[in-house]
Simulated assay, not measured.
Amino acid sequence: MTATPPAGRKSGLVLFFAVTFTTTWAFWLVAIALGGSPMSYPTVIPYLLGGFGPVIGAIVIRARRARRRLPAPAHTVRLRLSMRLFYVPPLLLLAPATVLAGALLAHLLGDPAVSLTAGRNLIATMGGPVAFVVSMLVAGPLAEEPGWRGTAYPRLRASLSRVQASLVLGVAWAIWHLPLFFISGTVQNTFGLISWSGLLFTLSVIPMALLTGYAYERAGVVASIAVHFGVNATMALLSVNSPLTQALILAVQLIAVIALLAWQREEPVVHTAPPSHQVAHAPRRV
Rank of each mutant, 00 (worst) to 15 (best):
P112W: 08
P112C: 13
P112E: 02
P112Q: 04
P112G: 07
A113T: 10
A113K: 12
V114S: 07
V114C: 01
V114Q: 04
S115C: 08
S115K: 11
S115M: 01
L116M: 12
T117W: 11
T117C: 10
T117A: 11
A118Y: 11
A118G: 15
A118F: 01
G119H: 12
G119V: 12
R120Q: 08
N121K: 13
N121H: 08
L122H: 01
L122A: 11
L122S: 04
I123S: 07
I123K: 00
A124K: 15
T125K: 05
T125D: 10
M126V: 12
G128V: 13
G128D: 07
G128N: 05
G128Q: 15
G128E: 07
P129W: 05
P129Q: 06
V130I: 09
V130F: 15
V130E: 12
V130H: 04
A131L: 15
A131M: 15
F132Q: 06
F132W: 09
F132A: 09
V133E: 12
V133Y: 10
V133A: 03
V134I: 13
V134K: 00
V134L: 14
S135N: 10
S135F: 10
S135I: 03
S135K: 09
M136S: 15
L137F: 06
L137E: 15
L137D: 08
L137S: 01
V138E: 03
V138A: 05
A139F: 11
G140K: 07
G140I: 08
G140P: 03
G140M: 01
P141Q: 06
P141L: 14
L142P: 00
L142T: 02
L142E: 11
A143G: 11
A143M: 01
E144Q: 11
E144V: 00
E144I: 00
E144H: 05
E145N: 12
P146Q: 13
P146D: 01
P146Y: 11
G147Q: 05
G147L: 02
G147H: 05
G147W: 01
G147D: 01
G147P: 05
G147V: 09
W148Y: 05
W148G: 12
W148C: 10
R149E: 08
R149M: 14
R149Y: 03
R149A: 04
G150S: 04
G150D: 07
G150C: 13
T151F: 07
T151V: 12
A152H: 00
A152C: 06
A152V: 00
Y153C: 01
Y153I: 06
R155Q: 02
R155W: 09
R155A: 09
L156P: 01
L156D: 01
L156S: 00
R157H: 03
A158I: 01
S159T: 03
S159Q: 14
L160N: 15
S161Q: 02
S161K: 15
